[in-house]
Design a protein around this nucleic acid. Structure first.
Length: 717
DNA sequence: TTAGGGTTAG
């Protein structure tokens, strides 16, 4: 949390004439911009690829792969810390050879040959044995019952027969019983394949410890661990959220001198990708490429997902370019992953083109493709595209599942398509496989809640109670928000209480919602009712509100306490918290506190890009601010301009403020409020004729106005 | 699930 706060700083400050204890002007000089991305690898960080010190001693005759990798990891990883590894030139360039000394051969980091599987010979007893395995699967789970059935095995348990049965058993408990039975009867040597099959079943049961025990048993008994063994261990560790174990076994493989093939290699790439270790992944990727590896679509899906999670569009482009350069055709999963990634990187237009390319290439979309796209169009509020896609889905009879239905409902909420949502919801009630569930009801609460349809939302809430549909925190938040806006505080209190009784645990979003209701409730009974709920959900926040109202509270205390609150709050809810708190201050006539909060919020990176400057134009972007916060930011800006004018420093031709046109469902008419605020101050900003939501002023007008207002403006700085 | 890797919901 603290790292997020300190890396997201985008603060404009000056040092002269201010002491550290005082708030500094927000809008001044050049912004200090820290890199957008933080790099997890630095010269001092320990690379997980680095072998433990005892490694060289273990196999001195056989330099392990990690030994071979060491010089590469120190060069390549070091290199990525000195320049942005995500820059376009870096990513779109062909992977450079990572081997520095041309007289030595390139290191091979993976086997280009995938491990061959042994071919089965036809087993004439297959029918009998399959039926027998089914009997074992169906019998009582107790060991005694299992052993009793096992007595009746129809054919001798030789190697082939035992393999067939072992492969057909589930769940993992039965696989293990049979596996141990074979071992104790000592019928034939236990080969790797028996362990691999047993491990696979254990992996379905997410039994990592048992898998690890088996692996150690193999080592102790001299049974060879092959690529299938290692990839099974690694993916099981991954699924059990034991990444360090996955890395440990990957390194163990190197120690024994076994080369990973591409399956094991992409499994470990995925482990690092899930840890968000982009540099490690790219380093491994490049080393693989330098070894002559031509990655397959699965490896590209891993990279695509990783860049999507990071919201890194350059990375996504790299994946596409690289596939094209290597002549690897994306398959359905790769397209789905990249579409999802484009959505996360905030590129709806590119997602749309990619989807069209996919269809043109003859890859038919599935439920996941359409879910990703519907979600993207909904979030982007691209109503036309969303509805056209929906129509195409119907015409082409593209596959639908309940997740897609629910995503369509959420999209309707995002776009305010109440009637479409109602129709779809009714359709769902008539479907056997896709009847409305908790998600669907939540989506309907969202549809009515964001449309301000209080009574319909309450009807859905009651229907959920009647039908025993689980209410979740999001549904509760939608209702609370909508009842709060309608000033139906008593209903809101009842919904909140009923929800918490029904097991809803208030989260930061719900607290933000209560906080916003506090901000627009007038002082008195209603506001106290909301504060009682907030006290229950987040007592620290209520204590902070109290602190804001006390005159003796110092700026340092505000800074410290607010930081502590933000650190404990999920990233998405931080800015709303700050906005609401500023509104609360302004409504209680605590103007200076509002300025302090805006300052601290800016320092903590809650308002990146609040002020942008070119030589021609300085712009204040208040689109993500509440009305009170936008007024505060505007006053702060004008105060700063007052000082600049006084010092006769250079100013651009144009000043502008961007409030946005207010198309978003949560926009509270920021443009209108801003307009009346500037009018009240007689500031020379005029609504732009070309672009809605932009207010413009010329340098001459600003200077004239600032000079006329000089004494009062200086107060705010 | 037929000895191993990748993708859907505020």
């Amino acid at each position: 949390m603290a790292a997020t706060l300190s890396t997201a700083v985008d603060v404009h400050c000056i040092t002269k004439h201010t002491s550290d204890a005082k708030r500094r002007p927000i809008f001044f000089t050049s912004p200090i911009r820290l890199p957008k991305r933080s790099f997890t690898i630095s010269c001092t960080s320990k690379s997980p690829l680095k072998p433990p010190p005892d490694l060289a001693e273990t196999h001195p005759q056989n330099p392990s792969l990690s030994d071979q990798l060491r010089p590469i990891s120190t060069t390549i990883l070091h290199e990525t810390t000195t320049k942005d590894p995500h820059s376009k030139t870096h990513l779109l360039a062909k992977p450079k050879s990572t081997w520095v000394n041309p007289t030595r051969p390139k290191p091979t980091v993976l086997s280009l040959q995938r491990q061959k599987k042994s071919l089965y010979s036809y087993n004439p007893q297959i029918r009998d044995l399959k039926l027998f395995a089914r009997r074992l699967n169906d019998c009582d789970p107790s060991e005694a019952a299992f052993m009793a059935v096992l007595e009746e095995i129809p054919h001798p348990p030789n190697r082939e027969n035992a393999l067939l049965v072992l492969n057909s058993l589930r769940p993992w408990q039965k696989t293990l019983l049979f596996f141990n039975w074979i071992k104790t009867h000592n019928l034939f040597p236990m080969e790797t394949i028996f362990y691999n099959i047993a491990m696979k079943s254990l992996r379905y049961g997410r039994q990592f410890q048992l898998i690890e025990d088996l692996a150690n048993e193999m080592i102790n008994n001299g049974v060879e661990l092959d690529n299938i063994t290692y990839s099974t261990i690694i993916t099981c560790a991954k699924r059990c959220n034991l990444s360090e174990k996955a890395v440990h076994w990957f390194e163990t493989m190197y120690k024994t001198g076994l080369m990973p093939d591409e399956v094991t290699y992409s499994a470990i790439l995925d482990v690092y990708a899930n840890l968000g270790k982009i540099e490690e992944v790219m380093s491994l990727y490049e080393r693989g490429r330098a070894s002559g590896w031509r990655p397959d679509p699965i490896a590209f899906a891993v990279l695509g997902k990783m860049y999507g999670e990071a919201g890194d569009y350059d990375g996504i482009r790299f994946v596409l370019e690289e596939m094209k350069a290597l002549g690897v055709e994306p398959n359905l999963v790769v397209y789905n992953t990249l579409l999802e990634a484009m959505g996360k990187a905030g590129k709806p237009g590119l997602a749309r083109s990619l989807f069209e390319e996919m269809v043109e290439n003859g890859v038919n979309p599935d439920e996941k493709t359409l879910t990703a796209l519907v979600k993207i169009y909904g979030k982007a509020r691209w109503a036309k595209d969303a509805l056209e896609l929906w129509e195409r889905m119907r015409l082409n009879k593209w596959p639908m599942d309940f997740i897609l239905y629910n995503t369509l409902l959420s999209m309707c909420a995002d776009l305010g398509l109440e009637e479409d949502a109602e129709r779809l919801f009714e359709d769902m009630k008539g479907l056997e496989r896709c009847g409305p569930d908790s998600w669907s009801y939540t989506a309907m609460l969202n549809v009515y809640g964001s449309g301000g349809k209080v009574d319909k939302a309450m009807k859905v809430f009651n229907e959920m109670s009647e039908r025993g549909v689980e209410l979740n925190v999001m549904g509760c938040t939608c209702l609370v928000q909508c009842l709060g806006r309608a000033k139906r505080i008593d209903d809101m209190v009842r919904v909140f209480k009923e929800s918490t009784e029904r097991g809803v645990k208030p989260d930061d979003r719900l607290c933000g919602c209560l906080l916003s209701i506090v901000s627009y409730c007038e002082e008195g009974e209603d506001r106290n009712k909301v504060l009682v709920l907030l006290q229950q959900a987040n007592p620290e926040l209520v204590a902070f509100i109290k602190l804001l109202g006390e005159e003796k509270t110092s700026f340092e205390t505000i800074k410290k306490e607010f930081r502590s609150i933000l650190s404990a709050t999920i990233v998405d809810a931080r800015r709303p918290f700050c906005n609401c708190l500023i509104d609360i201050c302004r409504n209680r006539n605590l103007q200076e506190r509002a300025h302090e909060l805006l300052y601290v919020g800016t320092v903590y990176g809650l308002y990146p890009g609040l002020h942008t400057k070119t030589s021609e134009e300085w712009r204040l972007n208040v689109r993500s601010l509440s009305i009170g916060a936008a007024h505060t930011a505007f006053e702060e800006w004008m105060g700063t301009l007052g000082q600049i004018v006084k010092r006769q420093e250079a100013l651009p031709e144009v000043f502008s403020a961007n409030t946005g046109a207010g198309t978003h469902k949560f926009s509270h008419g920021l443009a209108g409020a801003f307009e009346s605020h500037v009018k009240k101050l007689a500031a020379p900003f005029r609504q732009s004729e070309e672009k809605a939501g932009i207010f413009v002023a010329t340098r001459e007008d600003i200077v004239k106005w600032v000079q006329s207002k000089a004494p009062s403006l200086a107060v705010t700085v």
